[in-house]
Computed example of a mutant assay.
Amino acid sequence: MAGIGHNSGRVDEPGQSWRKHVWTKARKDLLPTLPIEIVRRRVKRAAELGLPYRTYAGIRASNGHDLIGFLFSSNALRVLRAGQKMPQDRADKMHMLRDVRRVGAAQSPLRPAQLALMSGIDDAIIAPRFTDSWSAMRETIRSQLPAPADRFVVVGDTAFEREWSEAAAMAGYLVADEYFAPGMG
Score class of each variant (00 low, 15 high):
T140P: 03
T131G: 10
Q88I: 15
A106R: 02
F180L: 08
P146D: 08
A106Y: 04
P182E: 15
D89W: 10
T55R: 13
H6R: 09
A82L: 07
R78A: 15
L34G: 02
I68V: 14
D99E: 12
P14R: 11
A57Q: 10
L30K: 15
K44E: 15
Y179C: 02
G9I: 13
A167N: 01
D132F: 15
Q144T: 08
L110H: 00
A171M: 02
W164H: 09
M170K: 01
P148Y: 10
G50K: 08
S73I: 10
L97K: 00
V11L: 11
S73P: 03
A149P: 04
A127T: 08
R41M: 10
K85V: 12
V11S: 08
A159R: 11
H95Y: 04
G3I: 09
L49H: 03
Q84C: 09
R129S: 12
T158G: 01
K85A: 15
N7G: 07
L77V: 11
G64L: 03
I141P: 05
F152M: 11
W18T: 11
R10S: 11
V153R: 08
E163Y: 06
R40S: 11
L174I: 15
A167P: 02
R19H: 11
G9K: 11
I68T: 12
H21S: 09
T158P: 01
E139I: 06
D66P: 01
R111S: 09
V22L: 12
E13L: 15
L51N: 06
A167V: 04
A2N: 14
R45T: 08
G58Q: 13
P87R: 05
I125V: 15
G69L: 09
T140H: 09
A47I: 09
K93A: 03
W18E: 11
Y56V: 02
T55S: 11
R42P: 00
G64R: 05
L117M: 14
R129D: 12
V153S: 06
A46D: 05
V103H: 06
S165H: 01
I36Q: 14
R138W: 04
A113P: 00
